[in-house]
Nucleic acid binder design. Structure first.
Length: 595
RNA sequence: GGUUCAGUAGCUCAGCUGGAUAGAGCAACGGCCUUCUAAGCCGUAGGUCGUGGGUUCGAAUCCCGCCUGGAUCACCA
């Protein structure tokens, strides 16, 4: 039984006894005592004052006395204004620490919730490589999935690859015209980068043609529509949709190159999927559902034949669902795929990890699904995240200010290598072992930097700062963990055993603070799950690492002469490492044993 | 204009289901390597929590107005 529950129930009992009023746990405010005050937990008594008809101080005093008498673990209390600060005995914290040490996967909930959550993330286009924005998406999607798993839910991670459309045709046309039979293998380039180059090439040619037409006196708008290369791309899209054999074969070949490239990127990033959907196979979906919606009178048809949803009653506009020619649009597809997924899987929730530029889309999606009468309409959820900006301003592919995902990851690893070598770390490691550490540190820096920020917020990615391994960064947490492992290795080497700590000596405040942080982990995992926010876990890992660093600095561990104290500190060190490992592991950040 | 998200130290971010004197890191300045990893630790300095009202014992946190910035409002995806 956790001390907070005990306190809560006893306070309720006391209020009942003294003031004859029944209050509920949620009306009670029990919080951690602020650092500047003495105590561990604080009851805010202001809300109780109105039943008691006494001053806040008197109420606090009365409750404090009661708690001290009735709860063994309560060692003492003090009252400051309306705050009752309760001091918990060291014995309690030691007991909890011992309990935690028996849990091999501390921080992960053991009981299965029985809930299944589907998470769709990444969703790349197959015409160019992944960039900085995708990195945030991928890391968020992955860590949120892991957080939900840690909360005992079953998670199905899916990726919906956008492998069709005019943008793909642009790369295809440019390749046909300018590649002269080149392939990624022959050129020695990653497939997604290879294809992306032709996408850029298309844009260059397209712009040149527009200028040429304008030079001949054509208005800009018209020139954009009539540039020969654009007409070719549109023609290619028509051929693709008609199932033209050569076009489909080329499309297949180029998509395979790109997807192979993506696989490498995903692997380097440490993410994966349970199932991959391709838009080329799903883009016609949803049509029947929409037509049924018309029959049911939920949707309406215009004279020209197109089908719409009227959302003006909800403060939104009219939304197109089927074109005049009867083909689907993006929204229609999403309705269709969602429908299919709820048919195929027993899922209790579906989360889409998509940038906030699509907030409107998802608002409309859930509204229309509700109108269509689907009972799963309220089970879909948009995990919206803000854009990633650069110090110089926005990323623009046309202006060449895009930060490429592969390049960035490599740059981070290179910097980790340089820094590590400069500091003369990792002596005695083989080249291979050292490389593994550089990889963990470089990627850890990137991942932590991205995940520590509240997903909803637009974030600024400063490449230089992320490579600076000081402060609130992944490498700092990793470094702390490496030191913890080092201490534990040395303990083993010198034959020190680590048994349960049943010391009766009082432990210091610093040590108690550290235990309290360790104890908090499961609550943080739960909260992160409720809020779909890895940021909480990242900041928790940092807080714990920082607290450990102070402890490490102030107290001797291995050199402590008193066996009981040394063993206690070793156990504390070990569990601190476990807590950090769990938190970082859930975020998808690996921890090196040395660095 | 409609919808929506945000605005906290010079910079990047925590804190937001109302609670005590608003916290970190970076940058600046000053200390600490004969002692378990100095990618570290300690200290100094830095704030009208965008703004004006309201709700109450109490507001960075909740409500309303305003200001500023982002996103979005296609027979694109």
């Amino acid at each position: 039984m956790n001390i907070e529950h005990v306190l809560t129930s006893k306070v309720i009992a006391a209020v009942k006894q003294f003031y004859g009023v029944d209050i509920e746990a949620k009306d009670l405010q029990l919080q951690e005592t602020r650092k500047d005050f003495i105590g561990d937990l604080t009851v805010v008594v202001f809300p109780i004052t109105r039943y008691a008809k006494k001053s806040p101080e008197a109420v606090a005093e009365q409750l404090g006395e009661y708690l001290k008498r009735h709860i063994e673990e309560v060692r003492g209390y003090n009252v400051v204004k309306g705050f009752l600060n309760i001091e918990i005995s060291s014995a309690y914290w030691l007991k909890v620490l011992n309990e935690i040490s028996e849990d091999p996967k501390y921080g992960y909930l053991k009981e299965k919730s029985g809930r299944t959550i589907m998470i769709e993330y990444s969703s790349p286009n197959t015409n160019k490589p992944l960039h900085l924005g995708h990195i945030r998406n991928n890391l968020l999607g992955w860590s949120v999935s892991e957080i939900q798993k840690a909360n005992g839910h079953k998670v199905i991670m899916v990726n919906l690859v956008n492998d069709r459309g005019i943008h793909i045709c642009k790369s295809m046309i440019a390749w046909q015209k300018f590649a002269d039979g080149a392939t990624p293998e022959r050129v020695g380039k990653k497939g997604d980068h290879f294809v992306g180059d032709y996408y850029v090439r298309f844009d260059k040619e397209y712009k040149a043609e527009i200028q040429e037409l304008i030079g001949k006196g054509m208005p800009e708008e018209e020139a954009k529509k009539n540039a020969p290369i654009m007409l070719e791309a549109q023609e290619m899209l028509r051929k693709w949709e008609a199932g033209d054999t050569d076009t489909v074969a080329l499309w297949q070949k180029m998509n395979d190159w790109v997807l192979k490239g993506f696989e490498e990127t995903y692997e380097q990033m440490g993410i994966s999927f349970d199932k991959i959907y391709f838009e080329s196979q799903t883009y016609k979906k949803g049509r029947d559902i929409v037509l049924k919606g018309v029959a049911d009178g939920v949707l309406y048809r215009k004279e020209t034949g197109s089908i719409w949803a009227d959302l003006t009653a909800d403060g939104l506009d009219h939304k197109l669902l089927l074109r005049d020619d009867g083909t689907s649009v993006y929204m229609t597809q999403d309705i269709g795929t969602a429908y299919d997924r709820f048919q195929e899987f027993q899922i209790d929730e579906e989360i889409y990890v998509v940038g906030n530029e699509q907030n409107y889309h998802f608002q409309v999606l859930s509204l229309i699904c509700k109108k269509l009468g689907f009972d799963w309409a309220d089970k879909i959820r948009h995990l919206s995240y803000g854009m990633v900006e650069l110090p110089e301003g926005k990323m623009k592919s046309r202006e060449g200010t895009v930060v490429d995902a592969d390049d960035l990851m490599q740059e981070m690893i290179d910097t980790a290598r340089e820094t590590s070598k400069e500091l003369g770390k990792l002596e005695g490691y083989t080249e291979e072992e050292a490389e593994e550490v550089y990889r963990k540190v470089g990627l850890g820096a990137l991942k932590y930097f991205m995940l520590k920020v509240d997903p909803r917020k637009t974030m600024l990615f400063n490449p230089e700062e992320s490579i600076d391994f000081n402060g609130n960064t992944g490498p700092f947490v990793q470094y702390t963990y490496a030191r913890i492992r080092s201490v534990l290795r040395k303990a083993v080497d010198s034959g020190l055993s680590m048994y349960e700590s049943d010391i009766h000596l009082p432990i210091s405040d610093k040590e108690q603070d550290l235990i309290k942080l360790i104890v908090k982990l499961p609550a943080i995992v739960k909260e992160a799950g409720d809020q779909y926010s890895p940021a909480l876990l990242a900041n928790y890992a940092y807080d714990t690492a920082k607290e450990f660093n102070q402890f490490y600095h102030d107290f001797s561990i291995l050199k402590e002469e008193n066996d009981e104290i040394r063993n206690f500190r070793l156990l504390l060190t070990k569990q601190c490492g476990e807590a950090i490992k769990s938190a970082m592991g859930i975020l998808g950040i690996e921890l090196p044993e040395r660095m």
